[in-house]
Amino acid sequence: MDAQTPSTKTPVGRLEDCGAYRRLVIERDLDHGATDVWEALTRPDELQAWIGTWWGTPGAGQTVMFQMTAEGESTEPVEALVEECLPVESLRVTFASDRVVWRVGVELAPQGSARTHLRFVMRVHDDEVVSDIGPGWEYYLDRLAAALAGEAMPAWEDYYPAQCAYYGALEPIEVHEPFVPAAHGPGPEHLPGEPGSRRTA
């Protein structure tokens, strides 16, 4: 698939202007309860099914190591500071390596007992990179949905470079809701999703 070939996936992300910085926002409606989605985001084994894994001492205010495992080849682990961890509600993490710092957040809103609205947010320092990172996060969020459903993973070619033009052409939308993490959430004894922490929906 080349850049002119239409994608079979429809990109839905938007770029928001918060004044001092901008943020990429991508949302999904998932046919799974919030607890199941939360565990897919936080349990190392379930996380590995769609993006990567982590190890260390978890909890709000803690730094763990994260390694991407879905790229088809080994990648170097990076430090991940858990800025906020509110069980089955929100998770905000800052990833830092010697090359880049990524500040991302995920918020979950239950839609009844069997559906969840997911809002992914990433702080953007350079608009030019949106055309690259937008398709990538669309891809990984669809991998999350596929992992939850036990379905085959989507094809990378349906996202990159197929969605680059969409993201490269995004015009920022002015908003008045800055993406500033709250004080560390009520740090649980372990990150929700670790063995022994399963909650009922």
Rank of each mutant, 00 (worst) to 15 (best):
G150E: 11
L141I: 07
A145H: 08
L91C: 03
E16N: 02
A70R: 06
G136I: 05
P135D: 06
Q62C: 14
L47N: 05
R43D: 15
W55C: 03
D98Y: 09
G112L: 08
L141N: 00
M68F: 12
L108V: 05
W55D: 12
H125F: 08
A147Y: 11
R143A: 10
V88N: 06
T10N: 12
L141S: 05
T10A: 14
G134V: 07
A147D: 01
R92T: 11
V104K: 03
Y21E: 12
A80V: 05
C85W: 04
E73D: 13
R22K: 14
D132V: 12
V25N: 04
A20D: 11
L41Y: 05
G52I: 03
R92Q: 14
H125D: 13
L86I: 12
F95W: 11
P110Y: 01
G150I: 01
E89F: 08
S90I: 09
S74G: 03
H125V: 13
Q62V: 01
R23H: 01
V106S: 04
E27A: 06
E16T: 12
G134W: 02
S113A: 13
W54K: 07
Y139C: 02
P58E: 02
V37N: 02
T57F: 08
P87K: 03
Y140W: 11
P44R: 11
G59A: 01
L141C: 02
L148E: 00
M153I: 01
D31R: 15
T69P: 03
E89A: 11
G19T: 10
E27I: 06
T69E: 05
L148P: 04
T75E: 09
P44A: 01
V12E: 14
I51T: 08
A109T: 15
L15K: 06
A145S: 12
